[in-house]
């Protein structure tokens, strides 16, 4: 097993797989909370958004009228938690009539590159995501 980039010898590669739309069920919020808690353990964490999970990153979410918390701004804090890889599946976007432009801007500041802001969202194909999954130590599904 290869050592994870940026982590120590004990660092494992964690992938959180998000497949549900926000608000209709609690999965999206639960996943985000587990990611934030898990980030304290300084593992090599990535997030995947497939199927309806891609809707979690839609821009312009406004929940005032349904009386639940809008947690979409919290995805933009993930960079502070050193979670900088958000893989979004292209096929899932296509099936839903979405493009990268429909998603929020999520960036992180690269400490090794003079705090340069870089995009966290990476659109990948289904087969690329299969490879990413194959390279993980732990996969958590929501």
């Amino acid at each position: 097993m290869s050592e994870a980039a940026g982590g120590g010898a004990t660092s494992k590669k964690f992938l959180y797989v998000n497949r549900k739309a926000p608000y209709g069920t609690i999965y999206a919020l639960e996943s985000l909370e587990v990611v934030l808690i898990g980030a304290a353990f300084e593992q090599d964490v990535s997030l995947a958004f497939i199927d309806d999970g891609v809707f979690q990153l839609s821009k312009g979410q406004s929940t005032d009228a349904i009386g639940v918390k809008n947690f979409s701004p919290t995805y933009r804090a993930l960079g502070d938690y050193e979670v900088t890889k958000l893989y979004v599946e292209k096929e899932s976007l296509d099936e839903r009539g979405l493009t990268l432009d429909d998603l929020m801007d999520v960036t992180y500041e690269d400490e090794d590159d003079d705090y340069e802001e870089k995009p966290s969202i990476r659109v990948v194909s289904r087969s690329e995501l299969a490879d990413i999954m194959a390279g993980q130590d732990v996969i958590l599904s929501f």
């Binding site: 934030l36 980030a39 304290a40 918390k69 809008n70 947690f71 701004p73 919290t74 933009r76 804090a77 502070d80 938690y81 705090y115």
Partner: peptide, 21 residues
């Protein structure tokens, strides 16, 4: 301000890093 922007209270590690910056 952090809560206003991100809707979470940052973990202590994150807070200290942000203060440092």
């Amino acid at each position: 301000d952090y809560y206003d922007e991100y809707q979470i209270a940052p973990a202590v590690r994150v807070l200290i890093k942000a203060i440092k910056k």
